[in-house]
């Protein structure tokens, strides 16, 4: 998982968002950007898992326990998902390397 985005960085939800659960899908409003997003079912689960700071590595391990998906596919798709969340400023990232 060395090439996965944010693999060794701590990720958590940005506090500047209002989230609603709609039939299992997470729909959210970003106060900062004024935009609305739908994270869907899996995205919603990932959102729940980053309610407390976690690394992408830990996140993938939890998802592999819950879902029927290969490690490679999970890593690649979670990687792309986290990139998008970061682009939209929906997550906060802390570099663990700076604290070692």
């Amino acid at each position: 998982m060395t090439n996965v985005y944010l693999a060794e960085q701590q990720i958590t939800q940005s506090p500047d968002s209002i989230v609603s659960d709609m039939n299992g899908e997470k729909v959210m409003f970003s106060i900062a950007s004024g935009k609305y997003y739908n994270l869907g079912l899996i995205g919603g689960r990932i959102w729940e898992l980053i309610a407390t700071p976690t690394t992408a590595r830990e996140l993938v391990e939890k998802l592999l326990q819950e879902y029927n998906v290969s490690r490679t596919a999970c890593e690649e798709q979670v990687d792309a998902f986290l990139r998008r969340l970061h682009q939209e400023s929906l997550i906060e990232v802390r570099n663990l390397e700076a604290h070692r």
């Binding site: 609305y36 994270l39 869907g40 079912l41 819950e66 879902y67 029927n68 798709q77 998902f81 929906l90």
Partner: peptide, 18 residues
């Protein structure tokens, strides 16, 4: 077995006017 079905996680931006 007993694992949930996986779907590609996406970030869909909603057009609120629609």
């Amino acid at each position: 077995t007993n694992k949930k079905e996986w779907q590609v996680p996406t970030v869909e931006m909603l057009d609120v006017s629609e």
